[in-house]
Amino acid sequence: MQDLILTPNIDGPDDFYAELIAAHDGLSKEESDAFNARLILILANHIGDRAALSAALAAAKLSQEDTTACPD
């Protein structure tokens, strides 16, 4: 299994973020939510690794018990 990557891993983060936000331009709230859901499923399929996906679900909860946090 590959560990979930939680350190910077995207080249040109500002470009990516701008593209992500621009993808929602002109969408209603419902359409944006649906877009996000499709996007998550597409990215999950790309990752594939079940353990990594479980770790990602846990990380997104930001729960206090979570131990994947890195201080820096």
Binding site: L6, T7, P8, P13, D14, Y17, L62
Partner: peptide
């Protein structure tokens, strides 16, 4: 705050 990957964003 918790994950370094989000900081460049």
């Amino acid at each position: 705050e918790r994950y370094a990957f989000a900081r460049p964003l």
